[in-house]
């Protein structure tokens, strides 16, 4: 299966290792991975801030870069949502572009979702055996796209104990420009979310923005656990083949 990786700007700049992990993971599952060199940012920051003309310019660009791919896979829930749900919104007054955006929308997937739904794989390996993992559901993937069980299943099937976290689906307070427009509110939300965590070995999420925000907060407060991108954790999961599996 041929996959075009849309690495997303935050992963490209701040979590390059997650991009690498995503590529290795997809290859290990039999995919051929391409990296279209023209790719930049999906335009979500502009869209969410109300700058729809600017967002449309970035959407135009991204459409050109990716529309010929068989599948587009992103190691980011909110950027997937931007392409899949909001690009068509941006073109609702332009039927031609709307059709193109809908075409791209139909073949765009978040990494864990792609592995489970398209590749039909729910077991990556046993590399997370014994780890207590907290999974932060990014809001867009969860509520706009309904991605909830896929990442959790992949983690759990790799031996992780997904801890019972009352606020797992609550917003972490990132929200793009929200995090710097209303920093006190944003940090208050992070603190509330983090305060409900039980003891864990790692906190992971599929969203670069949430990860930067949460890890920054965890760092500031000196909390004793790493905050890691889902792609990296899933790649770790695949490192130790499951006993009796052919992989």
């Amino acid at each position: 299966m041929k996959v075009a990786l849309f690495v997303t700007c935050l992963v490209d700049q701040f979590y390059a290792e997650a991009g690498v992990a995503a590529v290795r993971l997809l290859r290990s599952l039999g995919c051929t991975v391409e990296f279209p060199p023209g790719q930049t940012c999906c335009g979500q920051p502009a869209y969410n801030a109300g700058y729809w003309n600017e967002a449309r310019q970035m959407a135009d660009h991204t459409l050109e870069v990716f529309e010929h791919a068989d599948y587009v896979v992103l190691p980011s829930g909110s950027c997937t949502t931007m392409v899949r749900a909001f690009y068509p919104e941006l073109y609702r007054d332009n039927p031609r572009a709307f059709a193109r955006a809908s075409g791209l929308s139909g073949k765009t997937y978040e990494l864990a979702e792609f592995i489970v739904k398209v590749l039909g794989i729910t077991r990556l390996g046993q590399g997370l055996a014994g780890q207590r993992v907290a999974y932060h559901h990014g809001c867009h993937a969860l509520r706009e796209l309904g991605i909830k069980d896929e990442p959790v299943a992949l983690l759990r099937n790799a031996g992780a104990e997904i801890v019972d976290w009352p606020a797992a689906t609550e917003c972490c307070g990132f929200g793009g420009l929200f995090s710097v427009k209303l920093p006190e509110v944003s940090l208050g939300m992070a603190d509330r979310k983090l305060s409900t965590l039980p003891e864990i070995d790692v906190l992971t999420s599929a969203d670069g923005g949430c990860l930067l925000h949460l890890s920054g907060r965890v760092h500031s407060r000196g909390l004793p656990f790493p905050v890691r991108p889902l792609a990296s954790v899933l790649w770790e999961a695949a490192q130790k083949p499951a006993v009796g599996s052919g992989a």
Partner: peptide, 28 residues
């Protein structure tokens, strides 16, 4: 903007090499 970010969120730093660099140097 950075002030609003770093007050309360420590340790913002880019990956040593971007994913794109790693990809283009054939290391991925």
């Amino acid at each position: 903007v950075l002030k609003a970010w770093v007050e309360g969120r420590a340790g913002l730093k880019p990956s040593p090499r971007s994913f794109r660099e790693l990809w283009e140097s054939g290391e991925v």
